Simulated assay, not measured.
Amino acid sequence: MIEVIKDKKEWNELLAKVKEMDFYHTYDYHHLSKTKKESPILLKYTTGNTILVLPLLLRAIENSIYKDATSVYGYSGLLVLKLDPQFNKADFHKELNAYFNENKIISVFSRLHPYIHHQEDLHSGLGTIIELGKVVYIDLTDPQDVQRAKYNRRLKTYVNKARKLCSVFEGNKEEHLNIFIRLYEENMRRVNADDHYFFDTDYYHQLLSSKEFETKLMLCQHKKTKEIIAGALFMKMGNIVQYHLSGLSNEYFQLNPIKLLIDEMRVNATNEGYKYFNLGGGLGSEEDSLFKFKRGFSKEHKTFKIWKYIVDEKAYKALTKNHFKSDLDNEDFNVGYFPAYRAPLKAQKI
C-alpha cells in the first residue's frame, strides 16, 4: 500500500524510526528547498512488516495534465524503516508504478545517497541508475593523526599557516549570519556561479533554526585585523557531517581560510563521534578544481548515483517533442538533461 504523507508530525515520526538517513530527507529541508511550483511529499510503502519511505518534490508540468517528481538538491532516495525477509521488490515496484500512473506522474528523478547502502538495490529494476562521479569523505573513525596524515603535503602547509594567522569560532545567526551571506555571495560571484546557488535570506535562517537537524556556522577571523574573512555551514545528522556552503573574502583568498574551517570541523566532528565527514564532489560531478580541492583532504570516496524513471514513455516523448519543437522520432531523447522536456534549450548535463 502507498500512502502520501504531507503532515510534518507524521513525516517526522516516520523518519525517527529510520536508522540510516540524512538531513536531506527531513520535512524542514524539503520545505526550505522547494520552489513555489513544487510540493514536498513523503511516499510510504507498507506490506507485511516492511515499511519504506521515499521523499520527493511533486511538480505540475505547464500546459499539460501531467506531473513529474524530483528530489531536493543533495542526497536523497529511499529509506528503510523495516525490511521483512519476505519482502518482494517486484511487488513494491508494481505499487509504486501504479501510484505514479494513477496520479499522472510521467517521470521521476532522485539523487541517491552515497552512504546509504540499500538504496541502489531497492531502486534498481525500475528505471535506470547512473553513476555521475565521486564524492570525497574523511573517515572520522580513523585516529586524528591518521586522518591528518592523509592530507596532501601542500594542504598541511596551508592549514598550518592559516592556523597561525587566524582563529576559528562558532557563529550565531543574530550576530554573524549577514556576514556569512555576504562572504558566500562574494565567493559565488568570484567563481561565476549559476543563479540557483544564490538563496534568499530566509533560506539561511531556516537552516539555522530547524530542530530536525543541526547546522553549525563556523567562522574564520584574522588575528591581526580582527576581520571575519571566511565562513562555512556544516550540517550534522545521524553519523554524517555534510560540508554544505562556504564563502570567503577575496582580499584574504591566499590565506586559504576555508581549508582551516574544514580542518577544524574534522577535529570537532571526530571528538563528537561522527563517522563520515562528506566534502562532496566537483561541479556537475566533474573532477574539476573544486574536486581536487576536496581531494587534498582525503583519498577516500563514494560513488554518487542518480535514479531516473520514465513512467509514461508516450507522454514523455510527446512533451519532449513539443519542448524542442522538432521531430525526435529517430532520437533517444538523451539530451544530457532529465527530464528532457524541462531541459534548457541549450541542454546542459545534470
Rank of each mutant, 00 (worst) to 15 (best):
I106R: 02
E102G: 08
F199C: 11
L126M: 13
Y66E: 03
V168Q: 03
H117W: 02
R59V: 07
H117E: 15
A98V: 02
G74T: 05
T128R: 14
R154K: 15
D139F: 07
H117D: 12
R189T: 06
V108G: 01
V72D: 01
G127S: 05
Y197H: 10
A90E: 15
R153H: 12
R163K: 15
H117Q: 13
A90D: 13
T201P: 00
N152R: 12
R59H: 09
E62W: 05
P143V: 03
I61V: 15
A98F: 02
V72K: 00
F199S: 11
E174W: 00
A149P: 02
Y184E: 11
L81F: 00
G133F: 02
H93M: 03
T141V: 05
D139H: 04
K173H: 06
Y197C: 07
I129V: 15
L112S: 03
H176K: 08
I130N: 14
E102H: 09
K82M: 02
L81C: 11
Y73F: 15
G77S: 10
S124N: 11
D200T: 06
L126K: 10
H117K: 15
N160S: 14
Y137M: 07
E62G: 12
S124M: 10
I106F: 06
P114C: 10
H123G: 02
D84R: 01
I105D: 03
N97V: 01
N178C: 06
E185H: 10
V135I: 08
N103T: 04
Q147A: 07
Y99Q: 03
H117F: 09
N172C: 11
Q119C: 05
Y158D: 11
K94V: 05
K164L: 12
S71F: 07
C166N: 14
K173E: 12
N192Q: 12
L78S: 04
H196K: 12
D91N: 09
L78D: 04
P114L: 10
M188F: 08
N178W: 00
V80C: 01
N172M: 05
D195S: 13
E95P: 03
R182Y: 09
K89C: 02
L126V: 00
R190G: 03
T201K: 15
F199T: 04
I129H: 06
N192R: 13
A193C: 12
D195G: 01
R148I: 14
G125F: 01
V80Q: 01
K134R: 13
Q144N: 10
L155P: 07
I138G: 03
V135N: 12
H123Q: 06
D202Q: 14
H118M: 09
N88H: 09
K134E: 14
L112Y: 08
L132C: 07
V80I: 15
R59T: 08
Q147D: 00
L122T: 02
V135H: 07
D195R: 13
K67D: 04
E170I: 09
D91I: 12
A60C: 06
K94W: 01
Y158M: 08
K94L: 08
F100P: 00
H117L: 11
I106L: 14
I65L: 11
H93E: 02
Q144I: 15
L183G: 09
N97R: 02
F180A: 02
D202S: 15
A90R: 12
Y137I: 09
G171E: 05
A60L: 06
L79E: 03
G127R: 07
A149N: 14
L79P: 00
L96N: 01
F100H: 01
D84I: 01
K164G: 04
